[in-house]
């Protein structure tokens, strides 16, 4: 297949996944912001949303304070924000149009409909109800797109590049979410497991749509180290780092099978995947979560670059 087509497929899935993550981040911030500070702590939820989305500098270029109005506006439709939800969907649709023949009609229609819907939305006059309806809509676009890809695409390289984009982006989002939340929830002076972080941790689980599944795996209530364990090491959890890497590893294997040769991406993914499988739980949670996540995010970026160099140019 054309390298440019593969590149478009890869990025189009990344942008759809990113739009969904942004919607989830906003969802959680909205939920926490409504709690009395005795339950939610004193940290600024809106600032932490900006941190997870990795756009602190950009945000404060055009905004004085991080509050509900400024942050939702910025993340959904900020004119100077190249990764706003609106831009993500626009770029995804643009990429899809450029590779219209490489995706199925079902996938195209979902993105094209989402794009037309965006043209109709009047973000300026959003009420709280409009906002939550809009966030639900964005999550649904991603779910439907993923489902359409899963159910309608031929299992050839087209599909594998679509999946690669999705899993690279998802691993990145989960790692950043965990990293930022870990800081917000556990300021240096406070010990793990203090009373008021219960809602913070459960909100984090909600952000990855896993509050219920957490309870199915861990029966003993919400514990910070178990939440981290869940999102890093549990293969049952589809948004965990290890789960994304299990998939990345498999997909890159399938690609090398189809093409009859392998390269740096296959080597990198195997290394990171093995690292996750051999991770020692105690060191991870007591001392090194932040260091670990920083390294993971860097490795994951490296994998994205390697895929690009090996296949997409």
């Amino acid at each position: 297949m054309l390298a440019r087509t593969a590149d478009n497929l890869f990025w189009l899935s990344r942008y759809v996944e990113r739009a969904e993550s942004l919607a989830r981040i906003l969802d959680v911030a909205l939920r926490l912001a409504t709690l009395p500070s005795a339950y939610a702590g004193t940290s600024n939820e809106w600032e932490s949303a900006i941190d997870i989305a990795m756009c602190r500098n950009l945000f404060f270029e055009s905004n004085e304070v991080a509050d509900e109005a400024s942050v939702t506006q910025f993340l959904i439709d900020g004119p100077n924000n190249p990764s706003s939800i609106r831009r993500c969907i626009e770029i995804a649709r643009h990429n899809a149009r450029a590779v219209r023949t490489a995706i199925t009609t079902e996938m195209w229609e979902i993105l094209n409909d989402a794009w037309s819907e965006l043209q109709r939305q009047k973000f300026k006059s959003f009420t709280g109800k409009d906002l939550s309806r809009f966030l639900a809509f964005v999550k649904e676009v991603s779910l439907r797109f993923d489902g359409a890809a899963y159910r309608t695409m031929l299992r050839t390289d087209h599909y594998w590049f679509q999946r690669l984009g999705m899993f690279v982006e998802r691993a990145d989002n989960t790692a950043r979410l965990l990293d930022v939340k870990y800081h917000v929830v556990l300021p240096e002076t406070e010990s793990v497991g203090g009373g008021l972080d219960y809602f913070q941790w459960s909100a984090l689980l909600r952000a990855v749509s896993s509050l219920n599944s957490y309870h199915l795996i861990y029966r003993g209530g919400i514990r910070p180290w178990l939440v981290a364990d869940f999102l890093v090491r549990r293969p049952e959890q589809p948004r965990s780092l290890i789960s994304s890497y299990e998939n990345l590893n498999r997909v890159l294997d399938l690609l090398s099978e189809q093409y009859g040769r392998q390269g740096p991406s296959q080597r990198l993914v195997r290394k990171t995947y093995a690292g996750l499988q051999n991770l020692d739980a105690d060191t991870l949670f007591q001392t090194g979560l932040h260091e670990f996540l920083t390294q993971f995010i860097a490795d994951n970026n490296q994998l994205g670059l390697a895929i690009s160099e090996q296949y997409l140019q």
Binding site: M1, L2, A3, T5, A6, V99
Partner: peptide, 27 residues
């Protein structure tokens, strides 16, 4: 392109070497 089942290319996807036209593919 879709109905014929062939690649839809832009100029930058093609190049010429020794008077033969190639497209850049993932392989």
């Amino acid at each position: 392109a879709d109905r014929m089942g062939v690649e839809l290319v832009e100029g930058r996807d093609l190049f010429v070497r020794s008077n033969i036209v190639y497209m850049r593919t993932t392989e």
